[in-house]
Design a protein around this nucleic acid. Structure first.
Lengths: 237, 237
DNA sequence: CGGTGTCTTGATTCTCATCAATTACTGTGG
DNA sequence: CCACAGTAATTGATGAGAATCAAGACACCG
């Protein structure tokens, strides 16, 4: 099922910030020197605590990014799909806390060394600008999340998580395109497995979500979103 | 007490991302066209909900950045002091949620239009790169905060807030260089006024903080930090 | 001195995390 | 094909922590 090549020229990930600048003069040498990694489902892409050796771009697949806090509880920070970046922390001078990444399904990734990234960005102003905008937007989302987290109820956090997952992975045949355990959802929403289960059963009773085995469906995204909207501003995290 | 001039050449804010690139060729026209604003203590710099007309850099003063959520409760997102930026959200294409900024003391700010910022950044690669790194680091901090917020107790949140305030504003004569109401601290820490008061009295009893009227002192920052360290990774938010 | 706003403390209520026990699901080897 | 672990999901009961409510102390300002 893997594509024959991960060559940037033929890549279809138009949202990829490298691909977007593929026609800039001077970029050729960088993309020729990138390398490609395959990860089986469940494998670690970035080991928590070990230094990051560069930046990764998801070519095909699904990845979860997390970091472990107290009592071994992991907090999922975000998910990454086709075209998205991993290893953004590499730019930060000090990396005192651990962040890990695991493939949620078989995943192919493109890898650039940190040095390559640095010199590429410094020599391609529009690329640096686009990266800057990307980070600025991510910052918006993250700060909004901080604000929301502080005062949202568990129910709202879980709904928010479901909406995020829907935006990120989408649905086919009325079912989310990813299978996450209740534990994963809890770790992302910032609550516990049991609470997620309780909220999910409540939502199912209210016909706001559906369940087909482990698969979750959201029949009316706007309707579900209104559960948060009533009390908070809708967020794009 | 105001400085005679806010000219970038003579500015002493070495952490300012504009100042840092003052010697780049081509920057002259931009810094000559910036304008300067004065804000009295308590005045709004950016009105919540109204579009942002560019970027601001704090020349002298102290600013709080907040956004209002449910039941009029404001969440303070961060504070800004000399050399720091406001209006970062301006780069984001959609601005669907409100963010406001208020001067905590008499404040002088430099202002660049969004167009000026855009063309400046696109023409000065190293500047765009520095901005990108800045945003990437802010993102780190914010994401760490998301993680922490999810599982910290109120006590830990308040301590974390105090440590942040100390890092940002510093102390003189054993007292924090800023006077915030309990409400402000609560709005920043993501809890309520009453809880902040309770934690502060407990900390005072434990000799981890001091109070001189409204002024708060932290006699031993590391000692206070250890209260969080024991359970979580120390963060640089 | 009122009066307004901040700060403080106590009592109550409610939400949520934790613990414990049960049930459903998945895959494996006989 | 079925018995069997082993894991994930579910439900209920309980306790701890935090928000809310209410009342009073304190400071500041005319």
């Amino acid at each position: 099922m893997y594509p024959k090549s991960t060559d940037c020229i033929s890549c279809v990930n138009t949202s990829c910030l490298i691909k977007k600048h593929i026609s800039e003069p001077g970029i050729e040498s960088y993309i020729q020197n990138k390398d490609t990694m395959k990860c089986r489902k469940g494998q670690s892409i970035v080991i928590e605590g070990s230094p990051i050796h560069g930046m990764y771009f998801v070519h095909t697949g699904q990845v979860k990014v997390f970091s472990t806090g107290i009592n071994g509880r992991e907090q999922i920070l975000r998910f990454a799909v086709n075209g998205e970046m991993l290893g953004q922390r590499g730019f930060s001078s000090r990396q005192i806390y651990p962040v890990g990444a695991v493939a949620l399904e078989d995943t192919i990734m493109c890898h650039f060394t940190l040095d390559a990234m640095r010199s590429m960005l410094k020599s391609l102003p529009t690329m640096a600008y686009d990266f800057m905008v990307f980070y600025a937007e991510e910052l918006n989302r993250s700060e909004t999340k901080v604000r929301m987290f502080a005062h949202m109820t568990v129910r709202e956090k879980v709904i928010d998580a479901l909406l995020y997952i829907n935006r990120k992975f989408g649905q086919t045949n009325g079912v989310l395109n990813i299978q996450l355990s209740r534990r994963d959802i809890a770790d992302f929403a910032g609550t516990t497995e049991e609470q997620v289960i309780r909220v999910l059963s409540a939502l199912k009773k209210e016909k706001l979500t559906e369940s087909f085995g482990k698969k979750i469906g959201i029949p009316d995204v706007d309707l579900l979103g209104r559960e948060i909207d009533e009390h908070h501003y809708f967020i794009q995290s």
